[in-house]
Design a protein around this nucleic acid. Structure first.
Lengths: 223, 223, 223, 223
DNA sequence: AATGAATGAGCCTTCATTCAT
DNA sequence: GATGAATGAAGGCTCATTCAT
């Protein structure tokens, strides 16, 4: 039984190894040698199972997205809960995804690579991973601010919220040298709490109804 | 004099070209061929002038940092101005750096690459480019909130502010498909304005003196 | 019975597919993937049924020769008919073989490939396909010219006749750009007619009894 | 001086070696290893000097064509000479080209490969090598037959003449086993003489003015 | 001081083949 | 009897580097 791999198992090992390597090195810098080294296969196995480097990559994304949808705690909240609580839940879920060590987090590391070095896979990721989460977030912000979900200001706020979350993942090499050498659980909870309070206020200031009345006026007379 | 380029000029052209290419493609994906193509030199010139690809890269960072210090509009503001104005000035400067087409902005794009694909150059960048700006920002936030610049909460806020700015640069491939296809001047001004108002409120909520009194308490009784 | 292909049928499908592909691409450029694609089998089936690429090729030739002998309209003419008519019949048969789309013609196309890229299979083809046709043609020419079939001049003429026919097949990529973009039926008939008249006159001039008297003498006094 | 190759010399050695190998094996089957083995260079030298396998191939053709034009005894005849003599001269030149061992003959072997396995190089060869010779031949045939050079029948005859010549080169592997094991000088002269007489009669029969009057009628009443 | 020429290592891919089932 | 899975070898090509000049 051991040593007797079988089609699906080899394919699976390749996918896992490729996910790791692509997430670590990016598309171009990832090599067959390293992927197959981790998967314990011959380099030609990739072409056999996936035809191409590109198709392997797309398969990796596909699998990551599937796993993402299977246990998606981001979108899975109680729509009747108060919006503040839903926002906090959302931010917590995104942080845990980005920072946590579980497999689906690699997909987000991969997304980070796509930003620097866009690929044919970016569209798929945007359509099936980013957009659903983004629209969900817009809904929460809409509830919070009283605006419509497709209001441009709502979208601006949603981007800001995402920016906060992604940055703490993305800039980790820098952040680790400045403040948080490690993202252990207490730090994680602290960051979630901080971000929640920060963006909640931001949303209220920019998108809240009172913002329309006072906010802008204030800005314009001071700057 | 004409036609006889001279040591310094060839070296300079190489540095400029390399800065561009590294900022566009990242360290690994940048190739001698493309750099030398833009610099109009022989590939061997790189090894001659800089020994290595890595040393060329380090030299590029070095030069970028020098130019950054020479005309740094980020740090160069009026310390007696009201903190809100200084914050707005800071955000505007960072946005223009990241998104604008001017030469010194390449260094920041390069920093963005370092986040995804850290290199021996990251330390230098952090120490000499990021940290000064970061501490400057902490000073502004401290003024705004009444806290000390080295207060952990001040630093958290500074990270959040940076996160906002960097995200709008870094996630451009995504953002362009969702909301802003192009970052022209009006869009840029709008984003600066939005970010300023968003983070100002966030800072006040998280770090402001009143936050200590109400903010946290509020959180804890709702979630 | 249905679905259970059976040994012979798989083998047969492989032979047919291989004949096509070898005839189209030549020995080296033909690949297992393409052959098995057309045959609807696994690549391993080739090694299983024929051990080798080379042995598959030899089997293909063998089968092509067998089929050639089974329904050979080239050799199958009326020996009592006048030689001119037999020559015309022969030329027509060769042209239709070489250029027509019927299956047995593939063997001749394969022969054409062997000329450019000789293989172990060439001998077999010469012995069992070319020589019989060649000797048959020599017989016709002998009847036409009054010489013996094994007269060197008869053989030279036979080569010339073959040369004409083969060229119109072999140089098709060139001919299609110069005169005949397509070899449809009317063009085919025209070429047969042209070639017949051309070579008939050539044979008479070179091998005919009167040629011995005048032809050579004429040449020697003019050139 | 020895061992110090220089750009042009290395490039030249590569071209010569490539001409040989391409002519022997065809485009696809030719490998960098074999070419560079004969040229005494590193495989990467090909990419350095010619960028591509394809561009090396095109350069080989280009050089072959240039050499062909430099010492072109095919087109170089006396236009005032009697057409029979010019036809004989033409055939002799083509035969010597095709069969002889000199370098430009490799180009024709290469042309033979192109017929079986057409490439981007075929067009160049047709335009610059085949067409000029073809039109020259049409001119000779026109003089001989009294037709115009662009008369379709003239062209048919020209193709037939070419067919004869090319076949004796192309089918050498077969011919050597049937009649002429070696193409030494006497054999060559004999083949030229034979071909000349054969095609001259063919041309007169098919394209000559008397052919119009009798030829066709004869055909139609006998066959 | 600078470069043109050349190279070795490594990349992705294809191919014919083998092995266990 | 036949195949799906996997592989070793080789191919063309790119890259950073070196060497003689």
């Amino acid at each position: 039984m051991a040593g007797d791999a079988g089609f699906a198992e080899t394919r699976g090992r390749l996918l896992s190894a490729a996910l790791e390597v692509f997430a670590e090195r990016g598309y171009r810098a990832a090599t067959f040698k390293e992927i197959c080294g981790r998967a314990g296969t011959n380099p030609a196995a990739i072409n056999y199972h996936f035809r191409d480097k590109l198709h392997l990559y797309l398969a990796v994304i596909e699998q990551g997205l599937a796993e993402l949808q299977r246990r998606s705690d981001i979108l899975d909240d109680d729509p009747t809960a108060p919006p503040r609580q839903r926002l906090r839940h959302f931010i917590g879920a995104v942080f845990r995804r980005l920072i946590g060590q579980e497999s689906p987090s690699a997909l987000l590391r991969l997304m980070a690579c796509e930003m620097v070095e866009p690929t044919a896979g970016l569209d798929v990721i945007i359509q099936r991973a980013f957009l659903p989460a983004f629209e969900h977030l817009c809904g929460i912000i809409a509830d919070l601010s009283g605006r419509r979900p497709d209001d441009p200001i709502t979208k601006d706020c949603a981007l800001s919220v995402f920016g906060q979350c992604v940055f703490f993942h993305h800039a980790r090499p820098i952040i680790s040298k400045i403040k948080y050498p490690k993202y252990d659980l207490p730090v994680l909870e602290h960051l979630i709490e901080h971000t929640f309070r920060f963006v909640e206020a931001g949303i209220r200031a920019v998108a809240g109804q009172e913002a329309v009345r006072f906010g802008t006026a204030q800005i314009e007379c001071t700057s």
